[in-house]
Design a protein around this nucleic acid. Structure first.
Length: 544
DNA sequence: TTTAGGG
DNA sequence: CCCTAAA
């Protein structure tokens, strides 16, 4: 900062410490959204400041600003053509123009809709006054002898020097109606604007004090002279999804570099729209905003998805995909769109909204089918895709199911079996736990207490599963030493530990049948069962 | 309605 | 997983 500009600024009366800026007329339906870095900030002119004129509520019309919308201009670089700025002798008029609106609209048209898409339809005039409350934190836009860079004409009031050529800008603001000032302006180094209505410009936080309709700009520059990262934390729900405000660390000391590389757009008078357009277009060719490209990719993949889905529907009759189709059909082909990248649009074979297989909807099943099942189905799909090893037999069972279904469907017109939902390990564990707690045969109780959350497991299911577990544990016990463990065995569904537990429990709480047979044959007492647990492990199979 | 057991 | 008989 040269002395001249500083002096100019200092000698101005306090009115110079304030300036108003305003956003020029913008089409009412224009939208502001996280903008590409090619947006242009235009300083039209400096306005006559007036301390007493704070435009309470009238100029800074945040009522039209959607509270959840925000604007973020990232890595904004600009320069000011200061010859366009009218400088008054006493003070200065200025208008900060967000000229990017038009561009944003264009880009927005190409974007897919996102929740954080910012639609700022109501900004016709957005202006405020810069209130230089503290010399240290608020910079003044003052005419200076620096002629190239915008910030070069700005005295940030830092004695130790904010490098004024810092041109990277992180400009963002969010509309909102916060009753309080945005940040602690008394703090010399404001690093975070966590409230709404904030602008952050190249390490300088510009806040809209909505109450007073003031534009406040403060620098987050540290005393070291290097710019701290300017942060604008827009705590908006809509912003929280995938768009964290980009924070650019600015090495403001490296001025020449920034000057040469980062001056990509200009602050121009509002009416020089053509210029802006040109600039913006040029810039956009260079680098589309990240979010834009992301969403484009997403859209692309979506369209791919649709295409492949369409193709799949055409190929539906092909036997190669028949099984999968059947399987998906059985899951009613709900619009399950796993976000798993492995799908990535390319390999989906089932379109949305595939017709529900009619034969499956018996009256009984319809009542039985509510929401919760879908989750489980998703879980099943996940299991199939991710943990195939866990439910190894599911494919076979599914095939079997299909046969049964088909047969029944063609013969009777309805399905005999309900959808197969693989037992997850956690479910098995719950079952085992339930058995250990309440004993074998108290399936209703186990269901109520252990499976209250999963409505699709009936007490009968629990019983059946337990029976299967017994069988599994038994066969595993028998085949433990056998080397001829097929692949199916290798991909054992239930871990050994669980089966061991099952055996234990089987010994403690014999399955009714064994119990019965035991009782009829040798009539052992319960205590004897418990005492001879180790024997039972071996004996039970033989008894059967 | 729950449980057991066959399929 | 379904069905049915028995309790």
């Amino acid at each position: 900062m040269n002395a001249a500009s500083k002096e100019t600024m200092m000698t101005s009366n306090q009115a110079t410490k304030m300036f108003t800026y305003e956003f020029p007329d913008v089409d009412s339906d224009l939208s502001i959204f996280p903008a590409p870095e090619d947006d242009v900030l235009g300083v039209e002119h400096f306005l006559q400041p007036d301390y007493n004129k704070c435009f309470p509520g009238s100029v800074l019309d945040f009522n039209t600003f959607h509270s959840h919308k925000c604007l973020s201009i990232e890595n904004f670089s600009f320069a000011v053509e200061f010859d366009q700025i009218k400088i008054d002798s006493e003070s200065l008029h200025s208008s900060l123009t967000l000229e990017g609106e038009r561009t944003k609209q264009e880009v927005r048209d190409e974007k897919s809709k996102g929740t954080d898409d910012v639609a700022c339809s109501g900004i016709n005039k957005l202006s405020g006054t810069v209130n230089r409350q503290t010399t240290d934190d608020i910079f003044n836009l003052a005419p200076g002898s620096c002629n190239a860079s915008f910030l070069g004409n700005v005295d940030f009031g830092y004695p130790q020097g904010f490098c004024s050529t810092d041109l990277g800008v992180d400009l963002s603001f969010a509309g909102g109606l916060g009753p309080k000032p945005l940040c602690d302006w008394n703090s010399p180094f404001i690093r975070d604007i966590q409230l709404k209505n904030s602008l952050s410009v190249a390490g300088h936080n510009v806040g809209f004090d909505q109450k007073d309709a003031k534009l406040m700009i403060s620098s987050s520059t540290g005393s070291s002279g290097c710019s701290g990262s300017s942060t604008a934390c827009l705590n908006d729900e809509n912003m929280s999804d995938d768009r964290p405000v980009k924070r650019k660390r600015l090495s403001s000391c490296d001025s020449s570099k920034i000057n040469s590389e980062h001056i990509e757009s200009k602050i121009v008078p509002f009416n020089e729209g053509n210029k802006v357009e040109t600039l913006v277009t040029e810039k956009r060719l260079r680098k589309p905003p990240r979010r834009y490209s992301e969403e484009s990719i997403e859209q692309k993949s979506r369209s791919n998805f649709k295409k492949s889905a369409l193709k799949a529907s055409k190929d539906k009759s092909l036997p190669s995909v028949c099984h999968r189709h059947q399987w998906q059909k059985k899951l009613k082909a709900a619009p399950i769109v796993p976000k798993d990248k492995s799908f990535n649009g390319g390999c989906i074979q089932v379109p949305f909204g595939l017709p529900i297989e009619e034969g499956h909807s018996t009256k009984k099943r319809i009542c039985w089918e509510p929401e919760e099942i879908k989750d489980n189905r998703i879980l099943c799909i996940k299991d199939k895709n991710d943990v195939e090893s866990f439910s190894a037999e599911s494919e076979d069972e599914n095939t079997e199911d299909e046969c049964v279904t088909k047969g029944n469907t063609t013969q009777k017109g309805n399905s005999r079996r309900k959808h197969h939902i693989s037992w997850t390990l956690s479910e098995v564990m719950k079952l085992v736990e339930g058995v250990s707690k309440y004993g074998v045969g108290r399936w209703t109780e186990i269901k109520r207490l252990q499976f209250s959350s999963s409505s699709h497991r009936t007490s009968v299911d629990l019983k059946d599963k337990w029976r299967n577990l017994l069988k599994a544990s038994d066969t595993q016990l028998q085949n433990r030493r056998k080397v001829v463990l097929g692949r199916k065995q290798a991909l054992q569904q239930v871990p050994e530990s669980v089966l061991c537990r099952v055996r234990e429990l089987a010994a403690i709480y014999p399955y009714p049948r064994e119990n019965k047979s035991k009782e009829t044959c040798s009539a052992p007492t319960t205590s004897s069962f418990k005492s001879s647990t180790s024997n039972m492990l071996v004996c039970l199979p033989t008894v059967m």
